[in-house]
Design a protein around this nucleic acid. Structure first.
Length: 229
DNA sequence: ACCCAGGTGGCCC
DNA sequence: GGGCCACATGGG
């Protein structure tokens, strides 16, 4: 197996984030279907906006595979409008739900596929790329797969100075090679990356109180420690 | 008035 | 296999 040429202590990294943020217990959502829809709606969109869209779907009794299929496109667009890209997302949601209904009957049946088959099936649907597919597999279908996102890449770049443009698959394989395969760990570690990315390791980083500053290459480069005698 | 957010698909080379 | 672009709202 080809892995990138770096060797961070991922368990130490996890412990530092975990002790700072606590166990995050992701993904928020009452049902598998809600998590599934949320994973698509949150693409390139803040979770606050997604919550509004999901609430609107709930209030109008549309948070359901069959209901999404039955709902007219323009009405669905109105409901999910706050989540952005709403025309695209409404069409894709309807198409995706139709395909699931047609090929598998319902979401649970789709989720009964084994991990690799499920991933291939999801990636075959327009509107679901690697990150969304893996988020659905991890948090809705609850099979251990490590989710990579822009935060994960940025944080790994800052801490260990790895290539910013490392491919999704390479970084994912790296995590899965280094970590023990554990559903709860995979779920929480991704959540920790997002939390760190939102609060500290942003595009404009706020390193001074970052929980990872003790191990961060970027921090040592940017904030040269002045030795006090 | 910018910049950013838990990406993706289409098109091009 | 990668680079560029459209897609769109709401919050800082």
């Amino acid at each position: 197996m080809i892995v990138p040429n770096f060797n961070p202590e991922l368990n130490e990294l996890y412990k530092l984030m975990r002790s700072h943020f606590g166990f995050l217990n992701w993904w928020p959502g009452d049902t598998k279907f809600e998590i599934f829809i949320g994973a698509i709606l949150t693409q390139q969109t803040s979770w606050k906006n997604v919550e509004k869209a999901i609430l609107a779907l709930k209030k109008n009794n549309k948070l359901d595979l069959e209901k999404i299929i039955e709902t007219k496109q323009d009405y669905l667009e109105k409901l999910i409008k706050p989540s952005g890209y709403y025309r695209q997302k409404a069409k894709r949601l309807k198409d995706i739900c139709s395909i699931i209904k047609l090929n598998y009957g319902d979401l649970d049946s789709l989720f009964k596929l084994d991990k690799e088959e499920l991933r291939a099936a999801l990636l075959n649907m327009k509107g679901i790329g690697k990150e969304t597919a893996d988020s659905i597999i991890l948090y809705a279908a609850e099979k251990p797969i490590f989710v990579i996102d822009a935060y994960t890449k940025r944080i790994m770049h800052r801490i260990y100075n790895i290539d910013e443009n490392i491919s999704y698959d390479t970084l994912q394989k790296y995590f899965e090679y280094k970590l023990k395969e554990d559903l709860t760990l995979y779920k929480d570690m991704h959540a920790q990356f997002v939390e760190l990315g939102k609060n500290y390791c942003k595009k404009k980083p706020e390193c001074t109180n970052c929980p990872l500053r003790s191990i961060c290459n970027h921090y040592s480069r940017s904030y040269k420690q002045v030795k006090v005698n």
